[in-house]
């Protein structure tokens, strides 16, 4: 992207920020309150039924970082899937911007910056909730985990956005939610250790991007992270995020300059 392109992307970002200004307080309350309720229900409720440690931790300590990563996937799906499709079709935010000097790639970049910000804020709120349960050791760890969860979300958000701008309507987005997002959510080690899965499924789970996000966040939270695996996780997630961004530059152009 040229220097001019970056300025242009920030013009597109300004729109999303102006919209967010109307809703941010509400979304942050929800972003903190939701995980607190979830952690209470699962940790204090269901967790008490799980007596044995999971991967060497209490069930709550095991589950919370997994849910953090899974929530990042869910947020990425809403922001990169539904919102992107709606910005193209129902609300016509993209076509409106495309009539101005902005180029499709800049409209995409501006929205991606905003999505990253949204993912970061939601992850940060979740980490604050985890800290309230004594699950975050220090501010530094909290920041690193927030970044890891943001990266996990981005690994999904950019490919989803690249595709959602080509989807004809919301029903296609819903289909992906049912058949891709839900299975990932359930079988990527969020609720239980994937070591408990039968062999072919365990290998399959290890390939899914969400598992890499879950394991990255979890090992960081439990203090069991080591450099090698963490770099593999982060590299895998970053690779997906970059691939999605590159594909999105093409699909956004095709869609907005048809």
């Amino acid at each position: 992207m040229t220097g001019g392109g970056q300025v242009m992307a920030f013009r597109a970002l300004a729109y999303w920020l102006m919209r967010y200004r109307r809703t941010w307080q509400g979304t942050i309350v929800v972003s903190v309150a939701n995980p607190i309720l979830f952690l209470l229900a699962i940790g204090a409720g269901l967790g008490t039924l799980v007596q044995e440690p999971v991967e060497g931790a209490s069930y709550l300590a095991f589950f919370a970082p997994g849910l953090l990563a899974a929530a990042a996937l869910q947020n990425a799906f809403v922001e990169g899937g539904f919102v992107v499709n709606s910005a193209l079709r129902r609300e016509r935010i993209y076509p409106t911007a495309a009539a101005t000097p902005l180029e499709p790639g800049e409209i995409f970049a501006g929205h991606l910056i905003f999505i990253t910000l949204r993912l970061f804020i939601s992850a940060g709120a979740f980490v604050v909730a985890m800290a309230l349960f004594g699950l975050i050791e220090s501010v530094a760890v909290g920041v690193v985990i927030t970044l890891a969860a943001t990266l996990t979300g981005l690994a999904f958000a950019t490919p989803l956005a690249a595709w959602a701008v080509t989807a004809r309507d919301i029903s296609q987005i819903n289909t992906v939610f049912r058949f891709v997002v839900m299975p990932l959510y359930l079988f990527s080690g969020t609720f239980f250790s994937i070591a408990q899965l039968p062999e072919p499924l365990e290998t399959l789970a290890r390939i899914t991007p969400l598992w890499h996000g879950v394991d990255l966040c979890r090992t960081l939270a439990l203090g069991t992270a080591s450099l090698g695996p963490s770099l593999v996780h982060a590299g895998y997630l970053a690779g997906l995020a970059i691939a999605g961004a590159l594909i999105g530059r093409v699909t956004f152009r095709r869609s907005l300059h048809a």
């Binding site: 300025v7 013009r11 300004a14 729109y15 609300e91 935010i93 076509p95 409106t96 101005t100």
Partner: peptide
């Protein structure tokens, strides 16, 4: 039209003006 119904009349103009730099 493709106006932003969530934003005010003036904000709609503001966003669009920013697009033009």
């Amino acid at each position: 039209d493709s106006l932003d119904t969530q934003l005010t009349v003036e904000e709609n103009l503001l966003v669009y003006g920013l697009y033009f730099g």
